[in-house]
Design a protein around this nucleic acid. Structure first.
Lengths: 200, 200
DNA sequence: TAATCAAATGACCGTCCGGTCAGTTGACTA
DNA sequence: TAGTCAACTGACCGGACGGTCATTTGATTA
């Protein structure tokens, strides 16, 4: 047999497996101890490999973080934006939007934000802007939606901002354990407040 | 003259001055580079003293952070709670509340939160709980207020939570530069949304 | 089985940082 | 002016961490 039948594919599979193994371990450690508070040894140990092996798959600690960041930003975008423009009654869309945002942060994905102070100036600015882009997209989508409900453009934009802020505040406060009730009733209350406040 | 006329007072003044000098420097550096990203040399240099001098006034880096934390938590409490129970029309109180919260975070006081991942497990839990206490107090105050407007207790509590979340989300998103408009119109929009949503 | 080599390992290196402390400074006293 | 001492200084120490690389491992091939 040729020495390269499908070996590229197989190698790729192993590589993908190891990368994922390391990324999951790193996410856990970063969330538990922060960026600077987590050592490469801890990440390697959590992934069940030696430190040197980590450097076979990632060039540096920052490279690992970058992968996690873009992964999570994509997920936030994918889960929240479709809810806004869905073909459903507005109250349902509000609920779905709040639910998606709460779920995202409740899964602990937010170390995107919590790690920011530990990054250097430039990576921090970049990560912050990317997260801001997601919120800007949410706001734009809500603005369009509210305009569709006959609300003047200016007012729609301002109220859209308030909705996005409410979703964000709700999600983060829940994640931090500052809101104790069950998620669904918080989501319901937020959706109701947004509904009454935005379209009346 | 006796050698202790008011020397205690004078020494205290100098001590207070130096402590403040160092605290301000530390706040600036922590906000720029995070807890672990800031060295004692940087703090000392920013305060215009040598590293050893810092240790004359603070026992450790963590001690500096602790002072800043309790300082800021007190300020958040003092500026937001009175607004809720003020003797004013409800929309004005909502505006004042949102304004106070936005101002707090816009002054960059929030490194309380941003530093959390960098603290050890226990200090982190403690700091987080203390901040949670302030939000719980805000929520309780709003609940009482809404009950005063004839809203049933359960609904009042849920809506109070939504108001607190909205204020928090608004403040943090503004501070991060994710909301570009002027603060006053965002505050107005949030107050309106909360007003229509909470008491109708 | 012997040869081959990519993957995995962990001891090691240079650097950096929190905290210490022996020495210096300068304001105040007698 | 000489003496005193608290405030201040910064060189230094011990330890930790990110990243490297010579060596080992074990799967695959011939």
């Amino acid at each position: 047999m040729s020495s390269i039948p499908n070996s590229a594919t197989k190698t790729d599979l192993v590589t993908a497996y190891r990368r994922d193994q390391i990324l999951q371990a790193a996410r856990g450690r970063f969330m538990a101890g922060g960026l600077k508070g987590t050592t490469m040894n801890q990440i390697a140990h959590a992934a069940g490999v030696a430190k040197g092996t980590v450097y076979t798959y990632f060039t540096s600690k920052d490279a690992i973080l970058n992968d996690l960041l873009s992964d999570d930003l994509g997920r936030l975008r994918e889960t929240t934006l479709p809810a806004i423009a869905a073909d459903e009654p507005l109250p349902d869309r509000l609920r779905a939007f709040f639910r998606a945002e709460v779920a995202f942060y409740e899964q602990g994905r937010d170390f995107i934000e919590l790690c920011q102070l530990e990054l250097g100036r430039e990576p921090r600015r970049k990560a912050r802007r990317q997260l801001g882009d997601v919120f800007a997209a949410q706001q734009a989508a809500w603005t369009v939606t509210l305009i569709g409900f006959g609300i003047p453009e200016d007012a729609a934009a301002r109220r859209a901002r308030a909705i996005v802020s409410l979703a964000y505040g709700l999600a983060v406060q829940r994640m931090r354990g500052w809101l104790d009730g069950d998620a669904e009733s918080d989501i319901e209350a937020a959706a109701r407040l947004a509904w009454k406040g935005a379209v009346s």
